[in-house]
Structure formats: structure tokens, C-alpha cells
Design a protein around this nucleic acid. Structure first.
Lengths: 274, 274
DNA sequence: GCGGAAATGGAATAATTATTCCAAACAAGG
DNA sequence: CCTTGTTTGGAATAATTATTCCATTTCCGC
């Protein structure tokens, strides 16, 4: 361990700085402490050594060592810092958003506030409008298929890649059609496979083409799109729609990502049972 | 003393109600307690009996009696209420997901509900914890740079690709380092450019390597990561952290996506003004 | 003022929580 | 494979903090 100064941080900022400073090249247990503390700084004021240690999954003594490494004489001294800095509950979500918004309109923080709000609204709308039957149908189609093909370009590409990533993590054979090198991988679509096609207005030609092709070959096609009237719906065996609120010209992806995650996990679970 | 029910309040509201209920016709010392507690409710979570008693100018035993009058078995039980209420909604997200996993309660729709909830919680946490200064710094660094390089693999790849997409839409020259063909595009990093590196635990080696390389070449590096203790932080000129509800391999990306969008739009705007 | 009931303060004890210490496990280098 | 230095877990101890108890005081109606 290379660290030295052993001067106890006197403010929360100094604390964070010191944390960043020491967190290179820490042994396993101490690193676990550092990470858990970094992620739960706000809980220090109201927790005991044992609680925090349990959260970090280390014995209490390791956490003690960590406190000393940070420059404090022990946990109590460290906790004192946070108990004093403790401001009456945090500003709640609404207040904080308000503050972010107010800060020099147009600044990054104000923008962020808008996008957070848009994302939250999208998620709520998704919760209200999900068609459970369509979702179940999609899961059963995908659960029964061979390889899963995922197609999505432009704005839908992050969703497609995420979906593929999670499917892969769950040991589901999945192939991302990413259009690299203008290869369309058309012949990878084999009988018994299924396609998940993702596109939103303005609908991408490539995605529609792949969907039409898959359909023609008799594959199941699951559509992830914005409306039931989407041109993609015509080619699909199951259509899942995702409402997404936009702010200005920009459309958040929060709801779509959440849906993709749920879909992937549900399919992964279904397939591991079969 | 006229009081009776002796049912411990289970919420902060119930606590306040009970406080109002008993505070008529209290003897001197107990009234002092009630008043001090009413005025300093928020400090209960982080104080000892002795401290609060001193604040109310009564002996500890008086405060003890007050707690019992409120319906608690003692001070500790009362404090527990406030310590738990402090980080709202958090206590046991992981456990809920765990239950969901083994209890298969309701299939895909229930799963979706959980991920929506996780996404919403992540967004709220993001609103509460954003470091505005770091965000502004990142925007100004990126606004002043030449080409922007974006690096993120695995779980971070969807974010990287989305960021690149939005930057491109805003006419900002941006290059996604996607690792296709194992090319590392090292020489594309030219003086005056900047790098946006994205990685979460377990941190991807490739991303760290690119960041270190960019740093060595004198480029500005903006890190998008999970904690300040992330190894990525060591290479970065600005570190933006995103809290995200994380359960095993399943990380809701809602907050990260929202942040990426805000960052891209802010940078795009800044650059169009210059 | 007197008797009884309620309230009070503080000292004694119990419980919890922090902290230290050391033997064992481990890793790196010869 | 052994040696040396570091890291680790847990049991032992120290310190703090909560809680109880009771002798003393205060209050109030008579």
C-alpha cells in the first residue's frame, strides 16, 4: 500500500478527493470498502460499522482499516464528519430537479433535468400502457426459437446492442445485425430462428427490409416500435409499442431500454427452463 | 398525563401526528423534550440521547421517558424509524428482485414493472446526486475540443453508440471506438481532440487502455463511470458519476442514457455557438 | 403546612458498538 | 519449496451509549 498523508479530511469534498486519491492499487477487501463507501456515502451518517461492513461484504475490521487509511483515527471520527454535514434529509427529488432547472437556463444541468423528467414520464407511461398479452406472446415466440436476430439502426441501435448484450449474458444465442461493411447477413436467418426488429419514426428502411425478409422466410418477427400503425407492424407476429416522451427534438430512450432489458431477461429465463 | 395508545408510529407522518396528539398538557421537562424534538426532528437520526437531551436542556432520563411516551420502547427504536426513513425507498431493492427471480410472480409483465421501477429510482438518484460542476467542466472541455472520440464496451457500448449518434445528429465530429476488427484506432487520437470514456464495474480493460493512452497524448478525457473510485477516474480530467440500480448482470441503463443525452446536447449547443 | 401523587435527576447497570490485536492465509520473490 | 512481508478474519477488549431504578423534589388539593 503506497498511501501516506494521513491527514483526516475535514469536508465532504476533501473526503471524496482523498477517496479518489487512495483508490488506485488497493487490496481486495479495502477496495470493496472504498467502492461501497463511494456508492453509499450518504449512509455513513446513519449506519454502524457492522452495517456498512456487511454492505461491503467485508468484516468490520477491514472497514476500520479503511477508515484509518482515509486518515481518520477510526470510524467514529469519520462518521462525525458526516453527521455534522448532515443536512435535514436531502432536498427531495422535486426540489432538486427544480434547482437543476433554474441554474442558468440552457446550461448542462438544466438540460439534464429536462431529460430526467422526460425519462421518468416515459417510464410511467410505459407502465400504464404496456400490452401484457403482446409482451407474453413475444416472450413465448422468442423462447421457442433458435437463434435470435436483433436489428436496429440509428436511434434504435443502442437498444439493439443492449438487447443483444443481455441475451448473450443469459446464454441465449443472439446475433446483432449491425450493418458493418454493408453485409446484411441475410442468410443467417434460418428456419426456426426469430427476429427482434426495432425502429421508430422515421422508420429505417434497412430494418423494415430485414423484417420483411424474415417474414417471407417464415421466421417469427417481434416488433419493438412506437405505434401499432408503424410500417413494421405489418411484418410482425407480435408488436410491442413503447411510448417515449420527447423534449425538443430529442427523444429519451429510458423506457425503451427498460423494456428491452425486461424482454431479454424474460426470454433468457424462459429458455433456461426449457 | 393523559396519554394512552402506546402504539409506536411507523412513519414520519405518524410520528408527527402522535407528537401533536400528546403535546397538550405535558409537564415541564417533557414539554421541553417535545419542543426540541419537534424543532429538530431531522437530527434524531444522527444524534445520541445525550446530545438531544443536552439540546433540550433536560437530563437523558427525561428524554428516555419522552420516547416511551411517544410509544417507542426506547430511544433506539425511535431513532431506527428516522434512520430508515432517511434513504427513502432504498432498503431492499436487491431483495425484491431476488424474490421476483425465484417466485416467478406474474411473468414478463412483473419483470417489466420491476425494471421500470429500477429505472425510475435510478433517474431520481441521478437528479439528487449530479455534480453540476463536473458536468459543466466536461461540457466546456468537450466544447473546446476537435474531434470527440467515444469509447465504451459491453454494457457501456449502447451508451457510447447513443452518444455518438446524438453528437453526429448535432453536427459534432464524433468517432465511436467500437473495437470492430480489433482495430484500436489509436492514431485517430490527435492533439486537440477529446475522449469520452464510459465504463462500469467490472471495468473494461480496453476502455481503461484507451483512456490512459489518450491521457498520455495530452487529450482531455471525460469519464462516465459509476464511482469516483473507478480506475477510470485516474485518467480523467472530468469525472461524471451515474448511480444506477444494479442487480447482478442486469443494470438498468435509464439514468446513464439520460445523462448521455444531456451531455451530447449540451456539447452540441456549446459548439454551435462558438 | 400536610399527604399523596406525579415528576425529576443522577448514579448504576445493561446493551451495543467501536477498536485493537494476533494468528492464520496469502502473495511475491528468491 | 522456503522466506518475508502483506492482507485478512475473528475473537477479545475498550469505549460509548442507552436504559433502568430509586431517592429526592415538586406540585396540588385539602
Amino acid at each position: 500500500m503506497q498511501t501516506s498523508p494521513a491527514q483526516a479530511p475535514a469536508t465532504v469534498e476533501a473526503f471524496r478527493a482523498r477517496l479518489a486519491e487512495i483508490s488506485g492499487g488497493l487490496p481486495k477487501r479495502l477496495r470493496q470498502c472504498a467502492e461501497h463507501i463511494a456508492a453509499n456515502t450518504d449512509r455513513i451518517a446513519v449506519s454502524t460499522v457492522a452495517e456498512l461492513a456487511a454492505g461491503a461484504d467485508v468484516p468490520p475490521s477491514a472497514l476500520m482499516r479503511f477508515c484509518q487509511l482515509m486518515g481518520f483515527s477510526g470510524f467514529s471520527e469519520m462518521q462525525k464528519l458526516f453527521r455534522e454535514a448532515y443536512s435535514p434529509g436531502w432536498p427531495d427529488y422535486a426540489t432538486r430537479l427544480e434547482n437543476l432547472r433554474k441554474g442558468q437556463s440552457g446550461g448542462p444541468a438544466a438540460l439534464l433535468a429536462e431529460f430526467i423528467e422526460a425519462g421518468r414520464a416515459s417510464l410511467e407511461m410505459l407502465a400504464r400502457t404496456t400490452d401484457e398479452a403482446a409482451l407474453s406472446k413475444a416472450v413465448s415466440l422468442l423462447g421457442a426459437a433458435g437463434t435470435l436476430h436483433v436489428a436496429g439502426f440509428r436511434r434504435a441501435f443502442p437498444v439493439a446492442s443492449y438487447l443483444t448484450y443481455v441475451l448473450d449474458k443469459m446464454s441465449v444465442p443472439a446475433m446483432l445485425h449491425d450493418g458493418v461493411g454493408k453485409l446484411d447477413h441475410r442468410h443467417a436467418l434460418r428456419p426456426g430462428d426469430a427476429l427482434i426488429a426495432i425502429t421508430f419514426a422515421p422508420y429505417s428502411e434497412e430494418t423494415l427490409a430485414i423484417a420483411a425478409d424474415a417474414r417471407a422466410r417464415g421466421l417469427s418477427v417481434v416488433a419493438l416500435t412506437d405505434h401499432l400503425t408503424s410500417p413494421l407492424a405489418a411484418h410482425a407476429s407480435a408488436v410491442i409499442t413503447v411510448p417515449e416522451v420527447d423534449f425538443g427534438a430529442f427523444r429519451s430512450l429510458s423506457a425503451t431500454i427498460a423494456l428491452a432489458l425486461a424482454l431479454a431477461v424474460a426470454v433468457g429465463t424462459a429458455r433456461s427452463d426449457r
